[in-house]
Simulated assay, not measured.
Amino acid sequence: MSRESAPGILDVPALIDARPIGAAQVLTFLPCFLVVLLDGINTAAIGYITPSLVTEWGVGRAALAPVLSAALFGLVMGALAAGPLADRYGRKAVLVAAVAELGLACLASTFAADLLQRAALRVLTGRGLGAAMPNAATLTSAYGPARLCPTAVLGH
Rank of each mutant, 00 (worst) to 15 (best):
L102R: 00
T110S: 15
A137I: 00
L75W: 02
A142I: 02
T28L: 13
V12S: 08
L30H: 02
Q25P: 06
D39C: 02
A62D: 15
V12A: 08
A132H: 12
F29Y: 14
I16E: 05
L80A: 07
T28V: 13
R3P: 09
L107C: 05
A136P: 00
G128I: 02
L10Y: 05
P20Y: 11
A71Q: 03
A70P: 03
F73K: 05
A132R: 12
L107S: 08
T140K: 02
G130Y: 09
R118Y: 13
D11N: 15
G144V: 02
R127N: 05
A98G: 11
E56L: 13
A136Q: 00
T55F: 00
A65H: 09
A18Y: 08
P13I: 02
I9M: 14
A112V: 10
G58L: 07
V36Y: 14
A18V: 03
A119L: 09
L124D: 04
S2G: 14
G40Y: 11
P134R: 02
A108M: 09
D39I: 00
V76W: 04
L104N: 10
A136W: 01
Q117G: 03
T55S: 13
V76F: 09
L10D: 10
A18N: 08
A71C: 04
L124G: 04
L107Q: 04
L115P: 11
A137G: 10
L53A: 02
A119E: 10
L68Y: 07
M133A: 13
A14M: 12
T28W: 10
M77T: 14
L121I: 11
A112D: 11
A82E: 01
G74F: 00
D17N: 15
T50I: 00
I46N: 09
L124H: 01
A93N: 14
